[in-house]
Design a protein around this nucleic acid. Structure first.
Lengths: 199, 199, 199, 199
DNA sequence: CATGAATGAGGATTCATTCAT
DNA sequence: GATGAATGAATCCTCATTCAT
């Protein structure tokens, strides 16, 4: 899993990862509007003015955090997909990877799960592209499920994503572990559609 | 279910309903931090100072919008519950009411669906009380489902709410209607647990 | 001691004395700028708009409080002056009356003691006239003191007023009573100038 | 005694002294509530927002002005105390220093003389500490006076401070000079208690 | 690289006051 | 008399951002 994308920008290797990490945490907890550059700079122990050496704007920073969040989830999910598993097991493995990243890794992915780009902001279009890019992975996995109609697939996708991402609202460490949660959520859909084929 | 009820609700009848309605829309689209009192006042065509004749603070306004949103969803769901239906049909009827309110009536309920109180703000505690109060309705409906374990119920609740509320992120008017969406989402869970008893 | 001046304004008899009394207290504690019409109206349990039935403006109100404060002190001092006393005893009696009004009666007089009209505000000129009008009483008493030069009198006046009015800064009920304080303060000056004649 | 000392006082040396000086003047003339940040910034020819680079809040600014005022008076008084003088002459010298600072140097000390911390505000406690710290100097000088009782000392202290600080209300440049005023005020008390010993 | 200084716009909120009812 | 509604100006303060050093 890469740390920070380094293409197209000078000196990205040195760019304080801490700034991104700190921003991720604050954006995850307080949202884009609720977290100020001052807050982030203070938490990262730099001056707000120094911030502009690394990011052109607050929106830029947010987009980088978001992109990194998508990448981390995508990398985890990609890694989890093994062709020797059944389609449903692949979907469960992917869901487990998605949830584990969301709930146990860091704040980058939480920003992704909590952010709802609605097109009102100029940045939203770009965020949606990133997110859609990732969701294709799941769409493919769902398309592989046996005995499912297009309609099944469409709603399964929306429902599964809704259910998985909503975990960030109620998950508390120490209770069910992410893989248990993923297993149980997928199970809710799996047997139904699995059994259906036998009818 | 009326759009706005002014009977028996003293808090609403004398206050510029437009202020609440406008606030609901802006909060729904831009979130608490993204919508300013200036924005809301401008959209409602009053001076920002006039706003303070009706609401003590921005948080107060938000809470009123949220409470009204919860009330509208709750009223719709309560009305939809008919004892002559089977447990699963009751759950689907409730889900349809929930979704119809969310997607077809107004912005109050969308504020509820999009707001994730996480305890960081002082207001969050109160919001959670309102929301939990409503969610009990669904918990009861889910408890009534035949042949479900406690674990089934727990995950069904989280997954169903996640799936239903996530619709505000992808729903576009003109495509599937709310009742179709609700039907299809509940169907994903329904058959599975229904069939299970026959195993 | 009159309650509220009733000349020149209609319906003054009914004008809520409580508004004046409340204003006196808030002006005494928080100053003109620190006490708002809202504060005063709230404490007096009327609406801010009702306030304007009785006073043309905040400055008007302040002036009335100030004038009433001056009157209360002046009335008390006037009453205390008895021609059968020696000049020094008369001055002490007047000082006692002044201090008793300041420290034991109400907030009107405290506004007078704490307000320092410096001419920056349009209202200041009028306040100074009221105050000077009262201070003439003391000037006369001091002029009557035996064996004092004009310079003595001038500084005695400034020092005595300074010392007396400063009591509002340190006086705490339950310790020395106002007449004791007045006696001790006057004593500081009295013996010196009294004795001097014997030299 | 220099007007502004920038050596050894880190808090002053880097900050726009003009901001402090301007604030001192406006606070002296209009009080804490009467002088707005806008006013001060405008008079100092900076934007109100620039102000917040140097001071965290209006209260902070006021406290700094107050502390600086106390320091200037204290420095002047400390410098004036010479052990080769008689106790009464020391007190007069201190009074002269106090008055000269108050009336001839700048506005910092006037803020101290005009501000009456009464405990209603959160800042008052700190102001009182600063003031008390300074007043100890005078208490010591008064304690050294021969043939004075504790009661004499207590009232002399209150009366002397009251008389000295009240000068800011009536002093006009061009008439009596501060040292004359101090001399005359102390003289009012001095002979009395001095003479007493001969009785 | 880093940052202290600066800023215009905007944040929520309060101000004294007016006026129709 | 009384007041609820309204307002424009002002309150303190924070915003994201720029720039000279």
């Amino acid at each position: 899993m890469s740390i920070v994308r380094t293409v197209g920008r000078p000196k990205l290797e040195n760019r304080p990862l801490e700034l991104l990490t700190t921003a991720a945490e604050l954006f995850a907890r307080q949202g884009f509007d609720g977290a100020s550059i001052r807050d982030i700079a203070r938490a990262a122990k730099v001056q707000p003015s120094s911030f502009y050496h690394f990011f052109r704007s607050k929106e830029d920073l947010f987009e980088e955090v978001y992109v990194e969040g998508v990448r981390r989830i995508r990398d985890a999910v990609t890694e989890s997909i093994r062709s020797d598993l059944s389609p449903w097991d692949r979907l469960e493995a992917a869901s487990t990877a998605h949830l584990t990243t969301l709930l146990e890794t860091d704040y980058f992915s939480i920003v992704v799960a909590k952010t709802i780009p609605n097109g009102d902001r100029e940045i939203d279009g770009r965020l949606i592209v990133h997110r859609d890019n990732y969701e294709k992975l799941f769409i493919n996995l769902i398309d592989d499920l046996p005995n499912t109609t297009t309609r099944d697939q469409k709603y399964l996708r929306f429902a599964l994503f809704g259910a998985l991402n909503a975990t960030v609202q109620w998950y508390r460490p120490g209770q069910d572990r992410p893989e248990e949660i993923a297993h149980n959520i997928v199970r809710l859909f799996r047997i139904k559609l699995d059994e259906q084929q036998e009818k």
